[in-house]
């Protein structure tokens, strides 16, 4: 479980507050996304969760541990954070070494380590590149490698900062199904993203951050179809919601689908009903 208790943060005493009085609770096994404008404080917020940063005011608890009194190493066993920029995560000679380094600090048997590495390479479609330098990969391949370095450690809370950036549709579907599977194993999945279409398809809950404050938190369809929250946060609602709104202007009886899967059906109903 992740708990933020009235958390505020600034990078130094003479700079502006980046996060202001945020409280939040995320249960184990939730699949959640956080969205907001550039500079809203999303990456800062997730760095508070793995102890890279400590709150200036308030407390952050990870599975009961107060991050202000815990070491980064302790927290790293619970929380895995994949950085927004893969170059900040990668340093080894080969993709395989990258994963090897990542599991080395865990008290795992050699066999367990090797199995985890092999499985991660397969699941993230990296086997072909395992002996190549991470810096000689395409952008999307590199990002998958950075996800792999955290994935391989099998943390109970997995935070991914912009994981879909630069991924094609096939890789996104692949990532989506891997994340859903992890969630069924009881992992908490926390995405930082600008990818509203991915969020609406896959994440049951969203948080909207604006200038360091949480201004929306709830079921995804509900938050995304809240015009006030969306416009305050300068976000465009997903295309399907905007299309339904447009049709509702003249056909108020048309109802918003409960989830994106029902969208086509809603349109067919719209055409059918007089």
């Amino acid at each position: 479980m992740i708990v933020l208790d009235n958390v505020s943060f600034r990078y130094s005493n003479d700079t502006a507050w980046v996060l202001k009085n945020n409280s939040l609770r995320i249960d184990q096994g939730e699949y959640i996304a956080i969205l907001g404008q550039n500079g809203a404080g999303k990456s800062t917020l997730v760095r508070l969760l793995n102890g890279l940063l400590r709150p200036t005011q308030g407390n952050v608890y990870i599975n009961g541990m107060n991050t202000s009194n815990s070491s980064v190493a302790e927290l790293a066993r619970e929380v895995g954070l994949v950085f927004q920029n893969p170059d900040h995560q990668l340093f080894a000679q080969t993709v395989r070494d990258e994963l090897q380094f990542s599991v080395k600090t865990l008290e795992w048997s050699a066999e367990k380590q090797n199995n985890a590495i092999k499985e991660t390479l397969t699941q993230l479609d990296l086997t072909l590149f395992s002996d190549r330098s991470p810096f000689k990969l395409s952008g999307g391949e590199k990002r998958r490698t950075s996800i792999g370095t955290i994935w391989v450690r099998d943390p109970s809370i997995l935070i991914l900062d912009e994981p879909t950036t630069g991924q094609d549709a096939v890789q996104k579907r692949n990532l989506a199904s891997l994340l859903s599977r992890l969630q069924t194993y009881g992992k908490t999945i926390f995405l930082v993203t600008h990818d509203i279409e991915f969020t609406i398809k896959h994440c049951p809950r969203v948080i909207i951050l604006k200038e360091g404050q949480i201004i929306g938190d709830g079921p995804t369809m509900k938050v995304f179809s809240n015009q006030r929250i969306m416009s305050e946060a300068c976000l465009f609602p997903p295309q399907i919601i905007r299309l339904i709104w447009k049709l509702q202007e003249t056909h108020p009886n048309l109802s918003m689908p409960n989830n994106p899967q029902e969208f086509t059906q809603s349109i067919e109903n719209f055409l059918k009903n007089q």
């Binding site: 907001g36 404008q37 550039n38 809203a40 950036t165 630069g166 600008h194 509203i196 300068c234 976000l235």
Partner: peptide
């Protein structure tokens, strides 16, 4: 990919 890290409005 110039907008990869940009919010939708930007």
């Amino acid at each position: 990919e110039p907008t990869a890290n940009l919010d939708p409005q930007r």
